[in-house]
Computed example of a mutant assay.
Amino acid sequence: MAESKADRLRIRAAWMYFIEQKTQNEIADILGVGRVSVVRMLAEARARNEVRIAIESELTEIVRLERALELTFGLQQAFVSPLSHPEADPIPGIAARTGAYLSETMRPGMRVGVGWGNTLMATLPFIGTRSLAGFEVVSLLGGVGVARRLNPAEFAWRFAQAFQGDGYLIPTPAVVDSIATKEALVERCGLQEIFSLADELDALVVSIGGIASATTFYRKGFLSEADREALVERGAVGDLLFHFFDRAGRLVDHPINDRVMSVEVDRLRRAPLRILTSGGAEKTEALLGAMTLIAPTVLITDEETARRMLDMHEAMQAGGTGRRASS
């Protein structure tokens, strides 16, 4: 479904004005535009017959889902990618939306921490390359010793390359054999300096993994099936940079969380702009947990995942088993 940024802003403005009964000043603050722009968008929506008694547009359901996600999880902004049918692969649409958002959002002088995975790799063709002075990219997870396409370092350096910036990598395996090894690498091999870069991130761009896919080919060698089963028994629903967490967004009690060579979650939450991009049926519970774990400010997902998240959150609240996340 073809759409432009102007279309999205216009329909979002109309939705908030006519459905949510927000004032023009409130809408201007939410969308980051001037009040005059809001007045113009509302007039254009009426001229296009998108506003009658209800809002009529192909984007209406998408906007409804985006606003529901924003209000439910305290997000600054949500982007929902449409699907051709419920069983379609969500990654291409999510990747396209993510690539467009990153192209618009990245600025000179930014320091951006990045994760890894299929979704992030798929965003690269959709990122508009340009030169940004002083742009820095920090890979948040080790793994450069493994020569695979979905190596954490691969996305980090290609993302930095897209904006002609500098890249900082963690030159270790993603997971080491013991806490002692991790401490030695950090304290004696100069890694503390790289980890410290995460304390001053302007933005964070990450995806998450579902626990069902924790032993796919790009994770093999780091996590055994016995480990995966033990994590499931402890309530793990997914991982963020190999930090395994439960549906309530709490890190589970398992040794792998102490041996992973990635930046601590507490550090990640300090970034003012936290972008989480992910989707798919197997990641719904993990995404709910991530709303608390990382408290994203921006969520990019697909329409089916958005519906599942909202339905599951409502069911959890009704059953008294969940809690609302906030940014």
Score class of each variant (00 low, 15 high):
Leu251Asp: 04
Ile208Val: 14
Leu241Ile: 07
Gly128Trp: 09
Leu65Pro: 04
Ile30Glu: 12
Glu3Trp: 15
Tyr101Pro: 02
Pro90Gly: 04
Val33Ala: 02
Ala28Asp: 05
Gln317Met: 15
Ala295Thr: 12
Ala6Ser: 14
Leu251Arg: 01
Arg267Val: 12
Phe159Ala: 00
Leu140Lys: 01
Ala122Val: 04
Leu141Thr: 07
Glu264Gly: 11
Phe18Ser: 05
Gly279Trp: 02
Glu264Ile: 09
Phe135Gly: 07
Gly32Ile: 07
Gly190Leu: 03
Tyr168Asp: 01
Arg270Ala: 13
Leu273His: 10
Ile30Tyr: 09
Phe155Thr: 01
Asn151Met: 11
Glu314Phe: 13
Asp166Lys: 15
Glu26Pro: 03
Arg269Ile: 07
Pro171Asp: 00
Thr119Gln: 01
Ile94Gln: 03
Met291Ser: 02
Val205Ile: 11
Arg10His: 01
Ala122Trp: 08
Leu197Asp: 08
Glu136Ser: 03
Glu104Leu: 13
Pro108Thr: 01
Thr216Val: 15
Val237Glu: 02
Glu50Lys: 11
Leu276Val: 07
Ala212Glu: 15
Val205Arg: 02
Val260Ile: 08
Ala184Val: 10
Ala153Thr: 09
Ile11Ser: 00
Glu225Tyr: 08
Val263Thr: 09
Ile27Leu: 03
Gly99His: 06
Val263Asn: 05
Cys189Ala: 13
Leu141Met: 12
Thr72Pro: 07
Ala271Leu: 06
Ile27Ser: 03
Asn151Phe: 03
Ala184Ile: 10
Ile11Asp: 03
Phe217Thr: 12
Leu240Gly: 00
Gln164Arg: 15
Thr123Pro: 08
Arg323Lys: 12
Met16Gly: 05
Glu229Asp: 15
Leu185Val: 02
Gln77Tyr: 11
Arg228Phe: 10
Arg107Met: 12
Phe242His: 13
Arg234His: 06
Val80Asp: 08
Ser178Trp: 06
Leu223Trp: 05
Glu61His: 12
Ala88Phe: 04
Ala96Trp: 09
Ala88Arg: 05
Ala95His: 07
Phe217Met: 13
Val137Phe: 04
Gly113Gln: 08
Ile170Pro: 03
Val80Ser: 08
Arg219Thr: 11
Ala162Arg: 10
